[in-house]
Design a binder for these strands. Structure first.
Length: 830
RNA sequence: GCGAGGGUGGCGGAAUUGGUAGACGCACCAGACUUAGGAUCUGGCGCCUUACGGUGUGGGGGUUCGACUCCCCCCUCUCGCACCA
């Protein structure tokens, strides 16, 4: 082939990608076994919901993960890199209803299609470990774990208020309620009291919080979000006796130091003592109307709405246990029943909300903490003073500083028996009951005589019935399926009813990463030996939208699995990379915006390698990636340039050692090669900055391209060029695996490029022998000098001062000093 | 309001410990090869200026021989939480 024939030819990505994908499949290339001779490395990307076809977010996520997997393999690690399907969930039911098919059929056909799409991307998964969570072979083990958790008291039932969607006939998770509407049908969500199953994640609140400190490989942002979500507060819980009544109002405060400043009490409209407080009062009707009114307002208000503080006096008083003062009890709209005790001691001088309320209802304001010795005047204060300071008007605690005062005041309550130090969390128990069909059945039985009974292990799994009912409907919820419900009590053998709730799909995704270590194990949910070999996951990669829910649940499950004896780790994911979104025209890709780019079309048009390359090149992984069709074009051009370079230089097949006699330009390329190896590797090691690694590779290619264009007649340079191109191919192979594998064989190599060791950086070769030194005059660049790398400072200084471009600016001026920065610059100050 | 992270050419993005701002890519401009080019190759490309030079990393101030980088104030964008007592 002559150069003219190849001057604008392109590589046949379709043939090459198919060839190598077949090769990898036929040789079972990425099958992974435990290997004690190699260090293990477990890299995992968040598994997808099989919605139908992959989107650009998947492409990005899995390209990043695949580079990590391939890179670590080449660095000598034994890499576990599995893939599976988060296969239960509501969309399958919707689709089944729409198409009059079955959720299982829809799901499995999507899985087949998407698996094929992932394979077309050339992702190096061990497909032998594939998991689909809707498969009874997976959820059986989940049911067993559920029962073990039940036995341990981590699972319980309670009746509480949930989000109910009337049109979907199901409870929704909080995150599925968008501005008060159902995410699916846009109908209003109503609170509804229902019985359901819960995981006692609050038992682990403290550990989930404190172990965040161990997660040094996680982004600070995610750690902060989890800390806020858990929401730990320390303070005092104590009782205020109701004046002239038997009952007490329990409160919780994080500011016990301000307790002498209490001037009223606020309780939530739903507070259990409300009835006791107001019944028989002459204002009872007014108060009840007021409560109805504010509860209705609460329901209607959107999340953006500013709420004006409102309240009503109950007519009753309670007594501050510290100073015996009688303070009025109000019902107030801003007090949350869900948090703390549903009652708040009000200190308007030192709390913004109490201050606003006090000003509205003209209640007294009593400062008890003075910051920086400045007196606060209740008449003229415009804001509450929330900063620490010294106590006044606080009896025996006067003069104490806020932090000491808190301790002393708590201690006082404890010794007098009306309160104690207390910690509260915002974290709530995890409600896992769903009234939907397409989920893992909760393995419990309700018996009229024996109550709730767990299904015996030997009767598991409780299989999701897959038969259609008489109407042909295939996914009506379990509570409508009489044949499923009817069973016998495991305890007494009498007729009983099965639990009809299914589990939240987040349960499946909370432990799948552990099951990958032993996906076909048939004795227990986990093979302890395998799990302890592979876990924790060394590198987890996924979207930041899971920062709280999935990642918190998985951390919780890991601790539960540890306590059940299956795992010996505390945390599941050592390092976490949260990749940014793929956006187009400044917005997240979505059907409604019409800015969706289908990976399938791109792969058809450019090939998987180009699509992978662009998604890695356009932005560092943690940032959002703006999709740009012309940028994809650029990546395709780059690969084709490399291709043409290789096919037009058949002499590159001769693998000669690099001699010591190199031309100037030969030495330069040799140097550039080793500088590139260094930069490339460092950029990957440093937070997986593939974008800068790739640009380093492009630079290397540009310099070998320009070198050989002018000097390709000189055969002596071939070994240097060969070294450069081989290094480039190996470096790029984790990113564009098919292309590099094919080009590698083009160079006459029989061994697979993947078994090549990662290129070694030769510091000697990378060393510059000439340096460009910048010469500044008073900080402005005036000249540049080419000097030997080992030049002495004095000599360099003399050269700089003699430089004509410098002289122009220093002539006739007094020389103050000269700064020489090794290998960088000279700055002359005049 | 609170918390976190950003603001660098027309665009995506680079810049060890303060030391050549704009690597790499896209777009654009000019040229080459062509019947043609939306292929390919070569060169140019922050802004102002014919040039010399000046100026420039959201704005203002400071430290320094030297600041995208450090300090203070302000503006702005994105994300998260949002009456949590």
């Amino acid at each position: 082939m002559t150069t003219s024939q190849t001057s604008n030819s392109k590589y046949d990505y379709k043939a090459i990608e198919e060839k190598w994908q077949k090769n990898w499949k036929d040789t079972d290339k990425y099958k992974t076994r435990e290997d004690e001779n190699k260090e293990k490395y477990y890299v995992l990307e968040m598994f997808p919901y099989p919605s139908g076809r992959i989107h650009m977010g998947h492409v990005r996520n899995y390209s990043i993960g695949d580079v990590v997997a391939r890179y670590k393999r080449m660095r000598g690690f034994n890499v576990l890199h599995p893939m599976g399907w988060d296969a239960f969930g509501l969309p399958a039911e919707n689709a089944a209803q729409k198409n009059n098919s079955h959720p299982a059929a829809w799901t499995y056909s999507n899985i087949d299609y998407m698996r094929n799409q992932l394979q077309q991307l050339g992702l190096s998964y061990d497909w032998g470990r594939e998991i689909a969570t809707c498969n009874p072979k997976y959820y059986t083990w989940e049911q067993i774990l559920f029962l073990e958790m039940y036995k341990k008291g981590i699972v319980y039932q309670k009746t509480t208020t949930v989000n109910w969607c009337e049109s979907c006939q199901t409870v929704l998770a909080n995150e599925q309620v968008i501005e008060g509407l159902c995410w699916r049908c846009d109908q209003a969500i109503h609170p509804r009291k229902m019985n359901g199953w819960f995981f006692k994640i609050t038992d682990y609140a403290e550990e989930l919080l404190s172990d965040l400190d161990k997660l040094t490989g996680w982004p600070e942002k995610v750690l902060t979000m989890q800390r806020n979500w858990i929401g730990k507060s320390t303070g005092l819980s104590c009782d205020f006796q109701l004046d002239g009544m038997d009952e007490k109002i329990a409160i919780f405060t994080t500011r016990p130091d301000t307790i002498f400043g209490v001037t009223f009490m606020s309780i939530a409209p739903e507070h259990p003592l409300v009835d006791t407080l107001i019944s028989g009062s002459d204002k009872e009707n007014d108060i009840r109307n007021f409560i109805t009114e504010i509860l209705a307002e609460k329901q209607q208000q959107g999340p953006e709405d500013e709420q004006i503080k409102k309240g009503i006096f109950t007519g009753k008083y309670c007594i501050n246990p510290y100073n015996g003062e009688k303070v009025p009890v109000y019902i107030a709209n801003f007090v949350l029943i869900e948090y703390g005790t549903g009652a708040v001691m009000a200190v308007p001088a030192h709390d913004e909300r109490d201050f606003e309320f006090a000003r509205t209802y003209d209640l007294p304001i009593k400062p008890v903490v003075i910051p920086d010795g400045i007196q606060l005047d209740p008449q003229t204060m415009e804001n509450a003073s929330t900063v620490p300071g010294l106590l006044i008007n606080s009896g025996e605690f006067n003069g104490l500083e806020t932090e000491e005062a808190k301790k002393a005041i708590i201690h006082h309550a404890e010794t007098h028996g009306f309160g104690k130090a207390h910690i509260t969390y915002r974290l709530r128990d995890w409600g896992i009951s769903r009234q939907r069909y397409w989920g893992a059945p909760i393995p419990m039985v309700h018996c009229d005589s024996c109550g709730v009974q767990p299904v015996p292990v030997e009767q598991l799994p409780v299989v999701l019935p897959d038969d259609a009912d008489a109407s042909g409907a295939t996914c009506q919820p379990l509570h409508q399926r009489e044949s499923f419900i009817a069973t016998t009590c495991p305890a007494c053998g009498k007729a009983a009813r099965r639990e009809t709730d299914t589990m939240d799909t987040f349960v499946e995704s909370s432990w799948y990463f552990a099951r990958y270590t032993c996906p076909r194990f048939t004795d227990a949910p986990l093979d302890k030996e395998k799990a302890s070999h592979w876990l924790p996951v060394d590198q987890y990669i996924g979207g930041v939208e899971h920062a709280i829910l999935h990642l918190l649940y998985s951390r919780f499950f890991t601790k539960v699995l540890r306590d059940l004896g299956y795992l010996d780790i505390d945390e599941p994911f050592t390092n976490l990379l949260t990749q940014g979104m793929v956006i187009k025209d400044g917005a997240k890709m979505s059907k409604s915006k019409g800015n969706v780019v289908d990976p399938h079309d791109l792969i058809t048009e450019y090939g998987a390698d180009t699509v992978r390359l662009f998604s890695l090149f356009a932005a560092p992984p943690e940032k959002d990636l703006e999709w740009n069709a012309q940028g994809v074009e650029g990546c395709s051009r780059f690969l084709n340039r490399v291709y043409r370079f290789i096919i037009s230089r058949p002499e590159l097949k001769e693998d000669n050692a690099i001699g010591s006699e190199l031309s100037e330009s030969g030495r330069a390329l040799h140097r550039k090669t080793h500088q590139t190896i260094k930069r490339f590797t460092e950029n990957i090691e440093n937070n997986f900055h593939f974008n800068t690694a790739i640009s380093a590779g492009m630079e290397l290619f540009n310099s070998m391209n320009s070198l050989t264009d002018s000097e390709k007649q000189e055969p002596a340079e071939t070994p240097v060029v060969l070294e450069a191109i081989k290094s480039l191919l190996i470096l790029l192979s984790p990113m564009v695996p098919h292309f590099c594998a094919e080009m590698w064989t083009q160079l006459g190599n029989n061994e697979s490029i993947e078994s090549e060791p990662w290129p070694q950086y030769d510091a000697e070769a990378a060393k510059e022998d000439l340096l460009t030194i910048v010469v500044q005059v008073v900080g402005k660049v005036r000249s540049r000098l080419q000097v030997p790398a080992d030049i002495e400072d004095e000599e360099l200084k003399a050269m700089a001062l003699a430089d004509p471009n410098v002289l122009r600016f220093i002539e006739g001026k007094e020389l103050k000093k000269t700064i020489v920065v090794k290998k960088k610059l000279v700055n002359i100050v005049v």
